[in-house]
Nucleic acid binder design. Structure first.
Lengths: 109, 109
DNA sequence: AAAATACGATAGTTGAGACTAATTGATTAG
DNA sequence: CTAATCAATTAGTCTCAACTATCGTATTTT
């Protein structure tokens, strides 16, 4: 059972552009190492490690050590607090349900 | 035409608990003044004004001056960057489409 | 065994932002 | 007119976070 991170943790984790870019790369790839994440990030490996720590604490990513590599992947339940929050306070969000409806059909025609 | 705020602006604006609480109160109420927002916020009026400035720059709220009062309301398009971002990177979010489907039926049975 | 690689952890620096207190400008009340 | 109220703004303080640089550890390679 995964400890549900607070909405503040998730929001804060994704607020930083660098850290959000790291998360986006993790989501886009199935699994990815720290070295690959560091490459082309513009910051040092230590910075990436710290960002990964934040993302992990926010419940957004999970790690899988293998030998001297550590593979990171996105945690499926990670964005749940964000979705829940928007379901509650994003009232006007319903204006955009047309798009969601399209997306739904795409998944479940 | 409303200037679309960046995802970073929106995320950063909502990341702070105090500022997010202000936004939530604005969403919950139709219109609300600075005095009312200050009451029970735990911070000074100046702090509230600064938070409102951030929320306004993020495109999340709008103001309507009337006499010596300024009424704030939520901006409908404000959360659009957040929805767009989640549509793109929140792949696993689709796990929760069951709930969204329920919500859809509630709106458009 | 020695060297190289991949990560993690920590100390220290810097800059940003959240806040208070105080001032100012504008509007309303007495 | 004068006093009071509402909101924005500024200056100044303080905390926190993002980052670099560095060291330490485990694993792999030669």
């Amino acid at each position: 059972m995964i400890e549900p991170a607070s909405i503040t943790n998730v929001m804060r984790a994704l607020a930083d552009p660098t850290r959000r870019a790291v998360y986006e790369r993790i989501v886009s790839s199935d699994e990815i190492t720290v070295v690959e994440l560091t490459r082309g990030s513009g910051v040092t490996q230590g910075a990436i490690s710290q960002h990964l720590k934040s993302l992990k604490q926010a419940g957004l990513v999970a790690e899988r050590p293998e030998g001297r590599n550590v593979y990171y992947r996105a945690e499926p339940e990670g964005l749940t607090p964000l979705v829940d929050w928007m379901s509650h306070y994003g009232v006007f969000w319903r204006e955009r349900f047309t798009n969601l409806r399209t997306l739904l059909k795409e998944i479940d025609p």
